[in-house]
């Protein structure tokens, strides 16, 4: 089990009802983690519409999780 800090932006923050959370998970990769979160929070965006960053570096979805990671999910936004 790994504990990570999650931050949500834009639509994800709105749909999760919070700007972030700490989570203990068995997810093996960022992709698995997002699937888990998507089921829990009902996120409308598929992973391929998002960018994910770990500890302020953009990352690919296959990256394994490490204890203490800060993970940020960033959707594109359109408002102006």
């Amino acid at each position: 089990m790994i504990t990570v800090t999650l931050q949500y932006f834009a639509q994800l923050r709105e749909q999760a009802g919070a700007g972030g959370e700490r989570l203990t998970t068995t997810a093996g990769s960022l992709g698995d983690l997002y699937d888990e979160l998507r089921a829990r929070h009902g996120f409308s965006l598929p992973a391929d519409a998002l960018k994910v960053a770990v500890n302020t570096q953009f990352s690919d979805w296959g990256r394994p999780l490490c204890d203490g990671d800060t993970i940020v999910f960033i959707p594109p936004v359109a408002g102006g």
Binding site: L45, D48, A49, L50, F58, P76, G79
Partner: peptide, 25 residues
């Protein structure tokens, strides 16, 4: 490089649908 393809309309939100506080833009 960040988002290779344009997301489907509606998925990216808009000021009309999601609302926006005036000073943010």
């Amino acid at each position: 490089c960040l988002w290779p393809h344009e997301p489907a309309p509606g998925l990216a939100g808009s000021c009309a649908e999601s609302g926006v506080l005036g000073p943010v833009p």
